[in-house]
């Protein structure tokens, strides 16, 4: 019989860290500029793919680099920083190559339809939006917002992974890493899906009015991740 209460009491700090990681991912997803299907046709500002897919792609790249780092060092700060940087590299590369497509392949300058002036560069935006579209490309504000968002996602993902690997159990190391990484990926998807309801297909970044709705998603993420963390900790700790 597994001592459920004992495991939860012993690993309560890990449960809290996992929950914090999940909330960071939910916040980070709001910052990633995704335009969904319209952006793939250069009809909306942002990267032309879905919210969950891009956030997961970036966050999981962060998880791979965090896994690398965890293999060679025990410093928690270094592991988490490594996950953050891995995700930031993935999203920056994706956004810059996406920008090549919009500028050289489609012939549209990057422009936001949600604000008149770019909040960072102060460039005029509305004149550069082509007729019948909601903007196109990735203006500087969206780019920087995406880098921060992916960084938060990678940070949250690696925090979850690190916390899961801190749970004491009797599993062989390879199996333990396997189950912890699968669980971290699962929690990543949960927390990437929750903000999608706020985003509703497209968001340009922190300057988008939809960004203001993030507290609701972070609260929902708190509830979902907390419950999932208890189950995960009991499942892994009881093995």
């Amino acid at each position: 019989m597994i001592d459920i209460v004992g495991i939860i009491a012993e690993d309560f700090l890990n449960i809290l860290l996992i929950t914090l990681g999940g909330m960071l991912i939910a916040l980070g997803v709001h910052l990633v500029p995704v335009g969904g299907a319209p952006a793939a046709m250069a009809q909306a500002t942002g990267v032309g793919t879905g919210t969950v897919q891009l956030a997961a792609g970036a966050g999981l790249t962060g998880l791979v680099t965090a896994g690398f780092m965890m293999n060679v060092t025990e410093s928690m700060a270094l592991i988490i920083a490594s996950g953050t940087i891995g995700a930031m590299i993935m999203i920056s590369v994706t956004m810059i190559v996406g920008q090549w497509m919009y500028v050289y392949g489609v012939g549209c300058p990057p422009a936001s339809a949600k604000v008149k002036y770019d909040p960072i560069t102060k460039d005029r935006q509305d004149l550069y939006v082509s007729q019948g579209t909601e903007g196109h490309g990735i203006p500087t504000a969206s780019f920087i917002s995406g880098v921060i968002g992916a960084g938060l996602g990678g940070l949250g993902g690696s925090l979850i992974y690190y916390s899961l690997l801190s749970i004491e159990n009797g599993l062989p190391e390879a199996n333990f890493i396997g189950i912890a990484s699968i669980f971290a990926i699962g929690l990543f998807f949960v927390n990437a899906v929750i903000p999608s309801y706020n985003i509703g297909g497209t968001i340009e970044g922190f300057h988008d009015p939809k960004f203001k709705k993030f507290p609701k998603a972070v609260l929902a993420s708190f509830v979902a991740t907390f419950l999932a963390a208890i189950m995960g900790v009991v499942a892994i700790g009881g093995m």
């Binding site: 990267v47 897919q53 997961a56 970036a58 994706t94 190559v97 996406g98 392949g105």
Partner: peptide
């Protein structure tokens, strides 16, 4: 994720 964000736009 990268393929659908970059090449698909073309």
């Amino acid at each position: 994720a990268i393929g659908s964000s970059t090449g698909d736009v073309h």
